[in-house]
């Protein structure tokens, strides 16, 4: 059994769990809130939540792997989501995605840069088809993108990081 991590600070997790009154029906909301803090679901929280909610760790893993939005891998500071819904796709989302991948040295399998600055994902539809092709950076929408505009955006973010 995967043991709890002694170095992990469970105070935040505990706060979220108690806000949900340790209700096992609230697994999804609880995981969402945990992910908001860590930008992913650290493995160490699973046995902890399982114990507190009195459900199996396998069940929580089941929920976490069912929903695309949950990540078990650490994510970058900047999460870029390129929309590849029908509208964005026909208006050229793939060339944008390819440009971003080559700029960041990422691929379909490798979604996060080693320095943990960028995560690049595709989503099926952001519901902003009128602005196609569209991408978001940490939930900020960038409409009517092109590969060049995407490169510009990356350059800008990298400068921001450097100035930090």
């Amino acid at each position: 059994m995967h043991k709890m991590n002694a170095n992990f600070d469970y105070a935040e997790v505990e706060r979220i769990l108690s806000a949900h009154a340790y209700d096992p029906h609230a697994i999804i909301s609880i995981l969402q809130e945990i992910q908001e803090i860590y930008r992913y679901l650290p493995r160490g929280v699973f046995p902890y939540i399982a114990d507190k909610l009195r459900v199996s760790e396998a069940r929580i893993y089941s929920v976490a792997t069912f929903y695309e939005n949950f990540s078990l891998e650490p994510k970058g500071r900047y999460v870029i989501k390129v929309c590849d819904g029908t509208a964005c796709h026909v208006r050229g989302s793939i060339p944008i995605l390819e440009r971003l991948r080559s700029e960041l040295g990422l691929s379909e399998e490798k979604k996060t840069t080693d320095d943990l600055n960028f995560t690049l994902e595709t989503v099926s539809c952001l519901g902003a088809c009128g602005l196609a092709p569209v991408l978001t950076v940490n939930d900020v929408v960038h409409p009517a993108m092109t590969p060049d505009k995407a490169s510009q955006l990356i350059k800008q973010i990298k400068e921001e990081i450097a100035n930090d």
Binding site: M1, H2, R43, F46, A50, V55, S56, E57, A58, R59, I60, Y61, S62, T65, F66, L72
Partner: peptide, 28 residues
């Protein structure tokens, strides 16, 4: 009431798995 296994992933990738796919011997 053991809960060693559950469904994991979804669609064509769905399978019965221990948490994080650890070997059964290391599961509950």
């Amino acid at each position: 009431n053991v809960g060693a296994i559950d469904f994991a992933h979804r669609g064509s990738k769905m399978l019965i798995s221990t948490a994080f796919g650890v070997p059964m011997a290391e599961s509950p």
